[in-house]
Structure formats: C-alpha cells, structure tokens
Amino acid sequence: METLLSFDKVYKDYPSGPSIIHALKETNFEAKKGELIAIVGPSGSGKSTLLSLAGALLTPTGGTISINGKSVGNLSSKEQTALRLEEIGFIFQAAHLVPYLHVKDQISFIGKMAGKSAAELEKDTASLLSQLGISDRANFYPKDLSGGQKQRVAIARALINQPSVILADEPTASLDTERSREVVELIRNEVVKTSRTAIMVTHDERMLDLVDHVYRMEDGILTQES
C-alpha cells in the first residue's frame, strides 16, 4: 500500500530556560492508504505535538516529514499553507463551526479557500451531506444541530478538498458512546472507500476495535501496540 504520511527520524524540542523539553523524541512512522490509525496516551505525552507536525502546523527540530510524496521541509510558508488546504483535513475535539454560517456554507467555505469553482463546490457539498446523512440540515445553523450532527459537518468540511490525510484530534470527546462509534465509523468508511489515511488522537479506548493500528505515546516516545 502506498504511504501517504511518513516521519523519518522526526523530533521536536522546545527550549525551557537553561534546559530543553523533548516534546517528541526521534520518531519513525508511516500511515498508508486505507488505514485508520489511533494514537493513545496520557495528556502531555506528545500526541498533540505529533498531530501538529503531521498537519504542517509545526516545524520539526530535526528529521523529515513527507505528505503524499512531498517533503514538507522543502516547501515555502505559502506552499505549506496550500498543502494544508489540499492534502490535509482537520477534525477537532470541538467542531469549531462558524455560528453565523449555514451547514452547507461551513463546508463550501473551505473549498473556496482552495480555489474550487462554485458549481463544483455545490455538487461536492451536496454529495458529502448526503453521504453523511445530513442533507436535511444543509440550511441549519450550528445552534440547531446535535453534537453528532456537528461532528458530521466537521467531517464533511475536512473532506471537501479531497485530502490525502485526515487528522482527528479527540473527535469523540464530547459525544456519548453511540454517537462516538458513529463518528469513528464514518471516518473509517471514508478512509477505506476513498483510499485516504486518517490519524486519530484519542483517550477513548472503546473505539480501538475500529482502527487498523494502535500507537501509544509516552513521554514523547511513540510505540506501536497493534
């Protein structure tokens, strides 16, 4: 299977007075097409640092990160912004929906930023809403949605530019068990059906039977468990 995200000897340090915090110790990691990967571990262990590095939001202190064959370190700031728009879809713990935008506009706004045409966006947005079972909420505001519906909108927004890599940071934290499984199953189905890859940081070990691989983060060290 083709590798869509890779870390080659990647590490991240932060200066802290006279000492250095090793937020992520030297890490080798690969995520391939069709894989949903979970990263678990206690707060402060380095999970968010790894996800931010994978999303080109942080620059590593050393090592090489490649996304869909492109070395992130070789890109200019402008090219990294374009890469995030085109190749990476973000799903956060809180859906972070814009209060004054209808559901369909929450999704199309991200596509506009990537330069998609209005006709293309209308078609793709309608398709995603249908796929995720929320077509009847297209003209609703976030305040009129349930927690599960908000996360479905967040998933649609993450997918609108057809990214290679989906990064999900605690996507089920505010949901009950039933809605949590629903959200993770939706992410898994999208990954398998469209040959993307997804990395999910989670404390919710009830969802681990739905993923292909589990990694644990402890004190900045990433190890594969399954």
Rank of each mutant, 00 (worst) to 15 (best):
V98A: 15
E30Q: 11
L83M: 08
L36C: 08
I21H: 02
K123P: 02
I21N: 11
L57E: 06
G17C: 11
P42R: 14
Y14V: 03
T49Y: 03
L24S: 05
G44D: 10
I65M: 07
G115P: 01
I107M: 04
F109M: 14
K112Q: 14
L75Y: 02
A23F: 00
G111Y: 00
I65P: 02
K70L: 14
S71N: 12
A126P: 05
V40N: 03
L51S: 00
A126Q: 03
A23S: 06
Y100T: 12
P42Q: 05
P99H: 02
F29I: 08
H96M: 13
K116A: 06
P42E: 13
P18D: 14
P99A: 07
P99L: 03
L57C: 04
S16L: 15
L83E: 03
N28M: 12
E26H: 04
A126N: 07
L129I: 11
K70S: 14
S71L: 10
V40I: 15
A82I: 08
D105L: 01
F109G: 06
L129A: 06
S45C: 07
K123Q: 10
L97D: 10
F29N: 10
A114I: 06
L24D: 04
T27V: 12
G69V: 08
E35Y: 02
T81D: 15
S48P: 06
G111K: 03
E87L: 11
K25Y: 01
S45A: 13
A56I: 11
L50Q: 03
V72K: 01
K47D: 07
I107W: 02
I67R: 04
T61K: 03
I110Q: 01
L24W: 04
K104M: 07
L121M: 13
A23M: 05
L101Y: 13
V98N: 10
S43E: 05
S76I: 04
E122H: 02
E120R: 09
G41H: 03
T81W: 14
S127Q: 11
L57A: 09
P99E: 04
S108D: 10
K25R: 13
E87A: 12
T27F: 09
G63Q: 12
A38C: 13
K33A: 15
A126H: 07
F92H: 13
S66Y: 04
K78V: 08
K33V: 09
A126W: 00
F90T: 12
L58M: 11
T64C: 11
E86L: 12
E120Y: 08
